Simulated scan of single mutants.
Amino acid sequence: MRRARTGTLVAVAALVAGLLGAGGPAGGPAVGAGGGAPARAADVSADVAVKVAADVAGITGVAGVANVADVASVAADDCDTGVSLPPGQRVGAKIQEIRRRGRLVVGVDQSAYNWGYRDSQTGKIEGFDIDLARAVAKSVLGDPDKVVLKTISTADRINVLKGHQVDLIARAMTVTCERKKQIAFSAPYFKVSQRVVAPKAAHATSVAQALGGKRVCAALNSSSHTELKADPHGAASIVTPDNQLDCLVLMELGEADATLSDSSLAAAMVAQDQTMELAGESFLPTYMGVGMNQDDTDLIAWVNQVLVEWRGGGWQASYDTWLRPSMGVPDPYRPW
């Protein structure tokens, strides 16, 4: 299997911190899980549990880059999906814009079970990514409810960021080198890999068996779609709906034989429909990050500061509420 690079920042942080005026920790605690969780599937077996262990110890980095051009060169020539700007709080142009507006506009999912989905009983969009969005709103605006959740499809994520239609995207978005050429990402907040979901009735025990000669589904413009275009893994055809949940529906209808997804959404599918299972091994490990426009350097650094604080308690509380039933106990040493 091909492997994505997922190391940590080793050279650029000290310089960029000076350029951005990265400050100290934000005042006020991070936001944890809000409200009661809806009824969910029972705990699944250990082989379904997905460990989360993204090494972000190098986010504060060390000096060693001469100038801004060198920073860009490092990003372009030596892509590292664990690299982001150092955490800090500087009220630059983007933070000023958000505060004038009085609302943080966040692109989210409404169909990713436990991550960002609309509860059928309350009508509210809830989940792990929504907790994160509210933590950012609280830090920037002082109120976790000062947020507009704008639902967008998997296929449109890059375009809405480049078009300034949202301030950021918290939508189970995988960091890839190709995407980093177009948008910016926060520091990692979850470790993921590629996983196959298939009906239990298929009895697939490997990726090759699950995908070989099959109709394989992946959301349009997702990292899984990109992987299948580069390496079909023996798939007979590729089905590309706009959203990942559509893949689950297509499998339930018998119109797709398997789905390739990142491990976070794969576990959510299995939790949502227990006739499905994770088939075969995981591969292509990488991270999930908050997506932002490359021009918004003050917001990028600010979100990274929020993540530093969120990991101090909010991350675990949110994980326990939304994800632990389907993903097991995270690595206690590095749960992100």
Score class of each variant (00 low, 15 high):
Val65Asp: 10
Trp322His: 11
Gly34Asn: 08
Ala57Tyr: 13
Ile95Tyr: 04
Asp295Arg: 14
Thr151Lys: 13
Trp310His: 03
Arg134Leu: 13
Trp310Lys: 04
Ala137Phe: 03
Ser139Pro: 02
Ala66Trp: 01
Ser193Cys: 10
Gly127Trp: 00
Gly64Glu: 12
Met327Asp: 03
Lys51His: 10
Ser318Asn: 09
Ala49Ser: 08
Gly213Lys: 06
Asn304Met: 09
Thr154Ser: 06
Thr205Val: 11
Val136Arg: 05
Lys162Gln: 15
Leu284Lys: 10
Gly163Lys: 01
Ala218His: 06
Ala187Arg: 06
Val12Ile: 14
Met251Val: 15
Leu19Tyr: 10
Asp47Val: 11
Leu85Ser: 07
Tyr113Pro: 05
Ala72Ile: 15
His233Ala: 13
Ser224Tyr: 07
Asp331Cys: 11
Thr122Ser: 15
Ala218Met: 04
Tyr333Trp: 01
Val270Phe: 01
Leu323Asp: 01
Gly58Ile: 15
Glu227Arg: 14
His164Val: 07
Gln194Asp: 05
Gly234Asp: 04
Asp143Glu: 06
Ser237Arg: 01
Gly163Glu: 15
Val329Glu: 10
His225Lys: 12
Val62Cys: 08
Arg195Asn: 11
Leu260Ser: 03
Cys247Val: 12
Ile158Asn: 02
Val83Gly: 00
Asn159Thr: 08
Ser206His: 04
Gly213Cys: 08
Ala13Val: 00
Val52Gly: 03
Lys138Tyr: 07
Asp47Cys: 02
Ser282Lys: 07
Cys217His: 03
Pro330Gln: 13
Thr259Cys: 12
Val308Pro: 01
Lys191Phe: 11
Leu161Phe: 02
Lys150Ser: 14
Arg171Val: 09
Gly163Ile: 03
Ala135Glu: 07
Ala22Lys: 11
Glu178Ala: 15
Gly312Cys: 10
Phe190Gln: 11
Thr205Met: 04
Met251Ile: 15
Gly7Ser: 13
Phe185Lys: 07
Asp262Val: 12
Val290Asp: 01
Ile169Asn: 07
Gln165Ser: 08
Thr275Ala: 14
Lys94Glu: 00
Ala17Trp: 00
Ala230Leu: 11
Arg324Thr: 00
Leu253His: 07
